[in-house]
Nucleic acid binder design. Structure first.
Length: 985
DNA sequence: CTCTCCCT
């Protein structure tokens, strides 16, 4: 294909994947035309629609102005507000660019109005009027829902026309013209219809956030859009970004061979003055945060404070210190001063200033300290006085030396924590105005950077750090680390101070340190395992995932790890084990999807869990597996009672709740057989009990469950149940709110299914001889890690310590802890995970046997687990392929075990059937004749033997006759082929 | 014995 000419090296691969897509698109082409016709035939009674028809015809003309105008009847006040948005001035430029290009990149910071207005421009230009609709993707569910509501309101249209779709719900109708959805939803739609024929334009919003689905969508759309246009089904792509970092899209030749135009839109934001610290506290940044907030509150004019910290624990500890320092219940006496002196250090000077606080003109302020960049060098010499007229706002960053022992209720501060796992009703408090006379102070994690916008914020305090999850690419172990944020992130945080009026951002680090921050955060896709993405792409018939036009590709280790896991799970066909080395190398990263993989790709969960679902039908286990997978997929189903409490009484309350929660988990885990399902039994029990009780907030509260998590599990169970029924018509599974606990047999089955899905997450208790080193006490060994891993103390199996376990994940904190642990049996491992086992030669005893039920030769084989060489018990399995199997099959055939009809001749054989196995067998021609005959038809089992007979009824007759006296030949011929039951005689 | 944040 001509587009791929620039990368000569892999033009071959590109061609084939292009062809794949061509193929897909051609298949869909006729369907699409039919759909178009259907759409056109639909009755269009509305006046607006008549205009649409007319305009649509003129659309193709080469006018420089949009030829189409679909009227929208906006309310006057809305129209007025709209006209103030900077993006409105750019409508013409934007629409002309869209007209002239397949893809347009639009950059505009928050406040430009691009998200709400661009869909309206497109609507007015007729993009939803000729059969196609306008699709908009958002990285978050809340954003998708609120965006659709807002655009509907602005356009004075119903939610049936401007609609949304998220994972579990939506209000899309057949009249929908603008559809706002989460990015994952659109990706799933591509699985159903590669050409996205419903849409005439797709807007990818918040592309700068670089969420994995956004990145994949852009990669896919870079191919889909030209394909659509080539087929005469016009389609446009608009990528919207809040930052100017768009080179990954525009300069990426694999994505767009000619760079799409970039249009910049001004943002109307209020000025935010940024204040850097002179010194950067490296350890006690929470203390510095606390002191900075105290100063702002004492010295600066009214206005909400938003504080960025890194985690729940920090948030609560700072909240607690602030509440002590500025109690917002004025009457309450605070005599229990448990805080350290440092916590309550206050500046006398600051206090004096507070008394005579001037109204400062905040708009009129320098953006940066004059000596920007020199702070660190001057640190130690510089003191925070002597800053002249800027003093009032330049709060300084040295801990004050003066002590203040008493809490100050005269200036109440309304302190609220905010983080993602916080209960929604607690979260909602930040959106309400603070009590009269008090100042709002929200102490938040990164949720407040993008997901939630808090009104009335004038001051931002930014600790400059973020907590991120890290994955070890080799071992898969994850850990959380606090790192510096990027400059883009720091600016985003600062911007939160200027939403309603000019504001100030206090950065608890120097501008030199800021200068060392990376410009932008890394794309998420480079920071996490990609097996789920690879499976989805394989399902789209993109076999050579390395050639996919990622805006930023994942590391090749990550891609290889993903491919290997998917092969182990059976989702991809095994690569060739023979042939030239270069071909094997090539095959390694381009394995096609298997039928199992197709089924797995239909389940919207991680591949390991999808495998469990694919196996879940046995012994009525499906509803349990669906529940377990749902609970494992939804994070943090238990309430956390270990965080620092706000007060002593709260502490007591929390420890009571914790005790109750621990007790309930023990109850749900059960005893005996069910306990061995471990933490997964706890999940199953918790969900079962909660649903049985009707999923009320009260039940969750009383039993230490997160209500929001339980709701999500309920919805996920519903979705997975539908998916299972869709993939497998006779699965016949439904969501049972009164689900009975699994029987003992079912628990055994569940553990095996879990083992099959988590085969690469297996661990074994260390052996006695290794216990000499105390660091291995109670430890487990895994195939990939040299260091010991442990069962997490919160696990149901923490004290049981089974010999073999599988785990959901390993999280490294003080030690490496396995979470989501389930006990497994050693004899299941070779049976269920043969791909990870090295099998030794068949055992002599018990001797190989013929299994009449399945018609194959079986034997016992020992094995060891890969990399760690754990000795596993011998289990019976298919005799390994090879000549020996033919010989054994021949022996069992002669004995009459394979075909009971010839059993009666076994006593008259001219040689013993065991002659087949002797080293000197060749001395007897009849052994060679029989063996050659079997090999020629690959008949080393009953099924292929019968197949050979269907081709040729006389097959094997003469070879067999050599084993029996001539007198019987005629009788034998009569019953040949000896298929079916023996004569009852 | 402790966990940033999101999406199918």
């Amino acid at each position: 294909m001509s587009e791929s000419s620039e990368d000569d090296d892999d033009s071959e691969e590109s061609d084939s994947s292009e062809e794949e897509k061509e193929k897909i698109s051609e298949e869909k082409h006729t369907e699409e035309q039919q759909q178009q016709q259907v759409l056109k035939e639909e009755t269009k009674p509305k006046e607006a629609d008549m205009k649409e028809e007319k305009k649509a015809e003129t659309w193709t003309k080469e006018d420089c102005k949009p030829a189409v105008f679909i009227p929208v009847e906006r309310l006057p006040e809305i129209q007025e507000a709209r006209l103030r948005l900077p993006v409105l001035a750019e409508e013409q430029i934007i629409m002309e660019a869209v007209k002239d290009h397949e893809c347009v990149v639009l950059c505009g910071e928050t406040g430009s109005g691009k998200t709400t207005q661009v869909p309206q421009f497109l609507y007015e230009a007729g993009f939803a009027s000729s059969g196609g609709i306008i699709g908009v993707t958002e990285p978050r569910r809340v954003a998708a829902i609120s965006m659709s509501h807002r655009v509907a309101t602005e356009m004075n249209l119903s939610s049936g026309v401007v609609s949304y779709q998220i994972r579990y719900e939506g209000n899309v109708t057949e009249n929908t013209k603008i559809k706002v959805m989460t990015d994952g939803v659109l990706l799933k739609e591509i699985q159903r219809d590669f050409l996205l024929q419903k849409y005439s334009v797709i807007i990818i919003d918040e592309a700068h956030e670089r969420s994995v689905y956004t990145d994949i969508l852009i990669g896919l759309l870079s191919r889909i859009v030209p394909l659509r246009n080539k087929k005469g089904l016009p389609m446009k792509l608009i990528i919207m970004s809040a930052t100017l970092r768009v080179e990954d899209f525009t300069e990426n030749k694999r994505l767009f061979s000619s760079p799409p135009p970039v249009i910049k839109v001004e943002a109307r934001q209020f000025a935010v003055t940024v204040h850097f610290n002179k010194r950067t506290p490296m350890d006690d940044y929470t203390g510095e945060t606390f002191r900075k907030i105290c100063k702002i509150h004492r010295m600066l004019p009214p206005g909400g404070i938003l504080v960025f910290l890194t985690g729940q624990a920090e948030v609560h500890s700072v909240c607690r210190r602030l509440r002590k320092a500025f109690p917002y219940k004025p009457n309450r006496e605070h005599t229990d001063m448990m805080e350290t002196e440092e916590d309550l250090k206050k500046s006398k000077r600051a206090k004096k200033k507070n008394v005579s606080l001037p109204r400062i003109n905040l708009d009129n302020y320098s953006a940066l300290p004059v000596d920007e960049g020199d702070e660190d060098r001057q640190a130690g010499i510089d003191e925070d006085d002597g800053e002249g007229s800027d003093l009032e706002l330049e709060l300084g960053d040295h801990p004050d030396t003066d002590h203040e022992e008493k809490a100050d209720p005269s200036i109440p501060l309304y302190v609220l924590p905010l983080y993602s796992l916080l209960a929604p009703e607690q979260q909602a408090k930040v959106f309400r105005p603070p009590p009269a006379g008090s100042r709002l102070c929200v102490v938040a994690t990164n949720v407040a950077e993008t997901s939630l916008t808090i009104p009335g914020i004038k001051y931002v305090v930014d600790c400059g750090r973020v907590k991120k999850r890290f994955y070890d690419r080799v071992t898969g172990v994850s850990s959380f680390k606090v790192t510096w944020i990027s400059q883009a992130s720091a600016n985003q945080r600062a911007g939160r101070a200027g939403r309603t009026e000019p504001g100030h951002c206090y950065r608890l680090y120097s501008s030199a340190v800021f200068g060392d921050f990376s410009l932008f955060s890394e794309a998420e896709i480079t920071r996490r395992p990609v097996e789920d993405l690879v499976l989805q792409m394989k399902d789209l018939n993109i076999e050579k995932v390395v050639n996919f036009p990622f805006p930023t590709p994942p590391s090749s280790e990550a891609l290889i790890a993903a491919e290997e896991l998917l092969i182990s799970l059976g989702a991809l066909e095994k690569p060739a084990r023979h042939g030239r080395l270069s071909e094997m190398e090539k095959a390694r990263l381009s394995c096609p999807i298997s039928p199992l993989g197709r089924a797995m790709a239909a389940f919207p969960v991680a591949p390991r869990y999808a495998k469990m679902l694919a196996l879940g039908r046995q012994q009525g286990c499906m509803q349990y597996i669906i529940t377990i997978v749902s609970a494992m997929t939804v994070r943090e189903i238990f309430e956390d009672y270990d965080r620092p409490a706000g007060s002593e009484e709260e502490n007591v309350k929390m420890s009571g709740k914790k005790a109750r929660s621990v007790q309930m988990r023990r109850l749900w885990a059960g005893q005996g057989a069910s306990l061995l399902l471990g933490d997964l039994m706890v999940l199953l029990g918790a969900v079962g009990a909660c649903e049985f009780a009707g999923l009320t907030p009260q039940f969750c509260e009383e039993n230490g469950l997160r209500f929001k998590a339980m709701l999500e599990i309920r919805r996920l169970r519903g979705q997975l149940t539908n998916a299972v029924n869709a993939v497998c018509a006779d699965a016949d599974v439904y969501v049972d709110n009164k689900m009975a606990p699994p029987t003992e047999a079912q628990v055994l089955c569940l553990r095996q299914i879990v083992l099959a899905g988590l085969g690469d997450h297996i661990a074994r208790r260390v052996q006695a001889e290794e216990l000499l080193d105390p660091k291995w006490r109670n430890a487990y060994k895994t195939p990939l890690l040299d260091d010991p891993v442990f069962i997490h103390p919160s696990s149901a199996l923490h004290k049981t310590l089974p010999e073999f376990v599988v785990y959901q994940e390993i999280m490294e904190t003080t030690k490496m802890y396995m979470r989501g642990v389930c006990a497994v049996q050693d004899d299941w491992i070779p049976k269920l995970l043969p791909q990870y086992c090295h099998f030794s030669a068949p055992e002599e005893s018990p001797a190989p046997r013929f299994c009449p039920l399945i018609g194959r030769v079986k034997c016992h084989q020992q094995s060891t687990f890969f990399r760690v060489s754990w000795k596993l018990p011998a289990i019976e399995m298919d005799y390994p392929e090879g000549l020996e199997r033919y010989k054994l099959f021949a022996k069992f055939f002669l004995e009459g075990q394979v075909c009971p009809k010839i059993q009666k001749f076994s006593s008259c054989l001219l040689s013993s059937p065991s002659t087949m196995l002797k080293t000197w067998a060749k001395l007897q021609p009849r052994t060679e004749v029989l063996l050659t005959a079997l090999v020629s038809e690959k008949a080393d089992n009953r099924t292929s033997l019968e197949a050979a007979w269907r081709k040729n009824e006389k097959y094997l007759l003469s070879a067999y006759c050599q084993w029996i006296p001539e007198s019987l030949h005629e009788e034998v011929s009569k019953i040949w082929p000896p298929i079916g039951q023996a004569d009852p005689r």
